[in-house]
Computed example of a mutant assay.
Amino acid sequence: MSTPGDTSVNYERKGYGRGLILGLTMAETMLLLVFCLLLAAGAIIAKKEKEAAAAESRAIEATKNAGITEAEADKAKKENEALLSQVSKMMESATGGRIPDEEWRELVKAKRDVERIKETGLTVEEAIKNAPVIKVIKEHAVDEKTARELVPAVKKLAEQGITAEQTEKMASSMAMLRDRGFTEKADPAADLAAALDKAAEEGNSKPHKWPPIISMSELEGYNFKVGSAELSDTFKIKLRQKASEIAGRAKEYGVDIIEVIGHTDEQAMSGYASNLDRGLKPVLDGQKPIGSLHPADNAGLGLARAISVAELLGGMPELKGLTILPMSGGQLILPGDQLTDGAQSGDVKARRRIEIRVRKRSEQQATKAVVQQTRDG
């Protein structure tokens, strides 16, 4: 039978035994672990020091092979360390202590791009200033070779005050000169002028076959509203059907001009003050409808009606590339190209008509314009 004292001793021995590992207390075990970790850390540090010494030895050997003295290498090393320290401080200040890998790659790429810009002979400021020009070139898919070829010509045109619109209009004339071999000669302007002078002297003795006139009168259903230039729905339908005939006539005779001539009868107009002087241009530019025109006489009414027809013809794909010119014959010209004698002064539907005439632009006049521009340049 155990005594109370024995029970207490046994309990203390049992509690003490719980804190032992391999005969060591918990505190002794922790000290042993720390010591092992220190040994491992010491071994790693020793290895790194050995690697650093080997690297330093190789660096010293390399500097000797390159003809650099130990003093110069030591100076460069100190300067590099100082520079790295400054860069580190700047980076820490700018980024809060670290630069993300993505941002670092962007910085490297930006540096490389700046170097490439400088290699072309441009500064970064010049590249930024010319960015809009580069954008335009890119949008029009102009390669470097084409740009190099066109830049001198564009510069010369700009110096002569020739706009892009004028240049575009000259393109067809220049193509004609090229096809006839003038642009390949030593002095194309002089040769072309001589050819024009010779052609003017000799004239054109060959008989010419003139294209017939296409007439559309009220008798055939080509109606306008009374005193107005607005086309009726029937007129619009018939005119669209007529477009292929006009295009065929232009192709058959090799012409590039379509003249739309408005004719009226001799009934006098009244009740309006004409606004054609100020109103024609906005209508031609598409800013105002044809109904905004208010002619006060037959000559103005004929012109307004010709503009209305020309506007509709101009939007037809069959006639793309042809120049359409609206004109007025007023009440002066009878059907059959006879001047009126004033005998038919009433309501005559046959006289209220639109005539379509096709012709070729004068090559001599077009070529002379190109020659003059070449001389001025």
Rank of each mutant, 00 (worst) to 15 (best):
P282I: 07
G329T: 03
K281S: 11
T340L: 03
L284A: 11
I333M: 15
P317H: 02
R305W: 10
N223M: 08
G279A: 13
G315Y: 04
E318I: 08
L219G: 05
S308G: 10
L313E: 03
Q344I: 13
A199L: 11
P295G: 09
I261A: 04
D233Y: 05
S328K: 06
L322H: 03
L325A: 12
D341T: 15
E230P: 01
P282A: 10
A250W: 02
A247W: 01
E318R: 05
P295M: 07
S215V: 14
K236C: 01
Q338L: 14
S292F: 03
D341K: 15
L239R: 08
N275F: 04
I214R: 06
Q287D: 15
L334N: 06
L239P: 09
I246C: 05
A296G: 10
M216S: 10
L293W: 04
A199M: 11
G342D: 09
L219Y: 07
H208T: 15
G291N: 05
G227W: 02
H263M: 03
P317T: 01
Q287V: 15
L303C: 06
M269G: 00
H294S: 11
V309D: 00
A243F: 07
G286F: 08
A247G: 00
G330C: 00
Q344D: 15
E245V: 13
S328Y: 05
Q344W: 11
L284N: 07
N298R: 11
